[in-house]
Design a protein around this nucleic acid. Structure first.
Length: 262
DNA sequence: CTCTTTGTTTGTAG
DNA sequence: GCTACAAACAAAGA
């Protein structure tokens, strides 16, 4: 699930359903997801308070406790948020649950438990400490800034797009989508790009991510002109009908069109 | 049983 | 320092 658009959808979900609701109970069912804190400390910082604001940087979601710290949620590959029924039951794969005063509850679910939960002073402090790159939707991300990130880098474009220390938010699927829509081969070295790709890069990346968010990050609602619907072993390029190629690039399964991407 | 998976970190080798 | 690769984390589904 969670790359930038998915996490933004979750942020809006938390905004709508969890903000300004008094938290009357906190249950930590998977303490292994906590880093730098303990279940007791997490509970102590949230209980009898509420979330006042939400923020997102790349794939990281932040819930700001009013007059308190921020809770950082990272979702790994299978994490999500869900509202729970008022009967007090706990959904499968629940790792953390916030119970609201009125009986409802919000749960962090994760099948594989590859995510992370911690307390931070602020989103910016966390981004700095982890040395995360700029958010892929950052308004101040300029073609010039991208060009500087690419210079002197011999590594494959795909590998760089997955590196959250360079640019935060793209994962395996959206990296493939961006390379497809830009007509760039995933194995192209970063420093072998002409200058005119960078303005196009910014525009294309924003268009993909914003449209995905508008479609609730639901691949079934993505345009048939995108790579995503055809990203499987027998898939063909939606533009030229060539069979897509598949290989491991940057450690991840990568699909591309051998005719459209150079 | 084997292989795959939307993420990230760590260790190793060149 | 940079780059590439494998393994580990853990668990479900094909």
């Amino acid at each position: 699930m969670p790359e930038l658009p998915d996490v933004e959808v979750l942020r809006r979900f938390a905004d709508r359903h969890a903000r300004h609701r008094l938290i009357g109970g906190v249950e930590v069912l998977a303490p292994g997801l906590l880093t730098g804190t303990t279940p007791a400390r997490l509970v102590r910082n949230i209980l009898d308070r509420s979330f006042g604001q939400t923020a997102r940087h790349g794939k990281h979601l932040f819930l700001g406790v009013t007059d308190g710290p921020w809770v950082m949620l990272h979702f790994g590959m299978t994490g999500e948020l869900a509202l729970c029924p008022a009967d007090g039951s706990i959904p499968p794969f629940t790792c953390l649950m916030w119970r609201f005063g009125d009986g409802g509850a919000l749960a962090y679910l994760s099948k594989r438990k590859l995510g992370e939960i911690c307390l931070v002073d602020s989103p910016q402090a966390f981004v700095n400490a982890r040395r995360l790159g700029p958010d892929a939707l950052d308004r101040t991300l300029t073609p010039r800034a991208l060009e500087e990130m690419m210079s002197n880098k011999a590594r494959a474009l795909k590998s760089l797009l997955l590196d959250q220390h360079i640019l935060a938010g793209l994962g395996n699927l959206y990296a493939d989508e961006l390379l497809f829509q830009m007509g760039l081969h995933p194995n192209r070295p970063c420093h072998r790009l002409s200058r005119d790709v960078f303005p196009r890069w910014v525009r294309t990346m924003r268009r993909i991510l914003l449209l995905a968010i508008a479609r609730e990050a639901d691949p079934k609602r993505f345009p048939r002109t995108w790579l995503r619907p055809f990203r499987h072993p027998r898939g063909r390029c939606p533009r030229c009908r060539a069979f897509l190629r598949m290989a491991i690039v940057g450690g991840r399964t990568t699909y591309w069109c051998p005719r459209c991407q150079r």
